[in-house]
Design a protein around this nucleic acid. Structure first.
Lengths: 198, 198
DNA sequence: TAGAATAGAGAACAACCGGAGAACAAATCA
DNA sequence: TGATTTGTTCTCCGGTTGTTCTCTATTCTA
């Protein structure tokens, strides 16, 4: 469902407002905030947002605009598995995982499940979940998700030299790979790791 | 259950009031405090708070308004560090950590921080956090927290034989230790692991 | 330029919120 | 025990707030 310009604007105001006050605003307050004089006009826009699934339908409840659904779904999207030698098998509907704050970077993060033992000596095992902070730069020595020739994604320790990039596995039976700089795109940096023994 | 504006206000007053006085207030006093003239009106609000699970239902008692115990902080207690060769440095006020459900066992759990590299080949590094499910039994091959002679606690892979217990480190430079069964007490089994790269 | 889509005004309506107060029952006190 | 306080239930009321209309102005598109 496509939002009109005004609807996006109103949705933005709603989100901003929810960060500042715990009580949802009333239509009257919102009208003032938006420069509207008619609650009816506002109601039309809210209905559009409800239809778009961005606002909780307030079934008959009268007091205060019902809480917007501000994507409060706590959690970090789980995007799929990453293997050496294959692109990320993206799961479109990445269901969120609950990740402790300590493992989160400042920027947007996502979770991948590691397939393969290529980083075994760095303490990263087959089946572990890794928390990746999405960013395009990394420092030498960081463990990154690297996309090679837009084909395959892999989790390796990175070493960037003029004109070339070396991806070091942490497995004695595998050797480092060297690529021209332009063939490697950094997709994120390892920030945390989770493992379940259940 | 969504609280209305007035209900939140009243709940706040209740909390403030209970901090200052031992005795819960009577409806009449509360009415005065809130500027109400009718006990009936107040009662309606209190009922809403009871329905929301914030106030204990008072079965006809006088001065019976009591708050429900504020849901204790979700989380698993962080108890301290565990090193090979030393007892757990217990932190009495273990501040809770937020642990994803996937890493929790069925029983009570706690979190320790690993000190030392004795389990490095099992992918457990110095500084990692381990989630331990509290139990006294384990299966051979489990990684457990073992208390030796009531003196030192250690994280090792366990092998139980008739009359003796073998604790296997996962580090080529260390060797397994053998103890009489009665000298080793299992304090818990490894269920999860977290690592932060920040 | 006609028509659709977007945006707003304003009136009328209905449901809800918050409160008043009476009547009653149960607990507490004298 | 009797009187008083206190909690409970009930009805009623008015203002607020969400909803539904209709009508108008503007912008974009065919």
């Amino acid at each position: 469902m496509q939002l009109t310009r005004r609807q996006q604007e109103i949705y933005q105001v709603l989100r901003d407002n929810l960060e500042h006050y715990q009580q949802p605003p009333t239509f009257e307050e919102l009208c003032g905030l938006l420069g509207l004089k008619s609650r009816g006009s506002l109601h039309k826009h809210i209905q559009a947002l409800v239809a778009a699934g961005l606002v909780e339908p307030m079934g008959g409840l009268k007091r205060g605009i019902r809480l917007v659904d501000p994507e409060v779904e706590e959690g970090i999207p789980y995007l799929g598995r990453i293997a050496a030698g294959r692109p990320i098998e993206a799961i479109p509907q990445g269901e969120p995982m609950q990740i402790p704050d300590q493992l989160l970077g400042k920027g947007p993060c996502y979770v991948l499940q590691v397939a393969g033992d290529s980083m075994i000596e760095a303490g990263i095992q087959d089946g572990d979940y890794v928390v990746i902070e999405q960013q395009a730069q990394a420092q030498n020595g960081d463990i990154v998700v690297a996309l090679i020739r837009n084909e395959e994604a892999t989790l390796k320790r990175i070493e960037q030299r003029p004109g070339e990039v070396i991806l070091h596995p942490a497995n004695p039976s595998m050797s480092a790979m060297v690529y021209p700089t332009q063939e490697v795109r950094i997709q994120g940096v390892l920030r945390g790791l989770l493992r379940s023994y259940l």
